[in-house]
Amino acid sequence: MSYTITLTINRVPRTLELDDPRITLLDLLRERLDLPGTKKGCDRGQCGACTILLDGRRVNACLALALSHDGAEILTIEGLAEGEALHPMQQAFIAHDAFQCGFCTPGQIMSAIGLVGEGQTGADPERVREGMSGNLCRCGAYRGITEAVVEAARAMAADGQGRAA
């Protein structure tokens, strides 16, 4: 049996035929839609590498069944930059050397944008660290990540971009 769902992915509406009900949003993005920026780390909701924005909220794409999210809007790392202009969070990660191998980075950046949108941490590094605890970095770039998120949170607040991804 096949299923038809619609998703808006990085602002583009898509109608998708799924031949298998087991497909997660993560596998859909990576294996069927040629969007491998979202990473598969643990595939069990423990590492945060697959973080995307689902209707504006950060979630683990590995634990989201695609069929369950029929009609949703999805934003991935591929949808952040506008042409050559990087998102302020992407710029801040570069400016603060917030990665080493880069595998966790798309998830870190999507999670950080979700965190700013939630509006619970402000630019308090202590709250940012706690709010980012669902994203593991095996290179240990946490110091740079925290600095980047704090700076971008300030910049996005100043630009009134708190909710804009």
Partner: peptide, 9 residues
């Protein structure tokens, strides 16, 4: 409990 991503879901 859990992480922000999991709490959102």
């Amino acid at each position: 409990g859990a992480s922000a991503q999991l709490r959102n879901a």
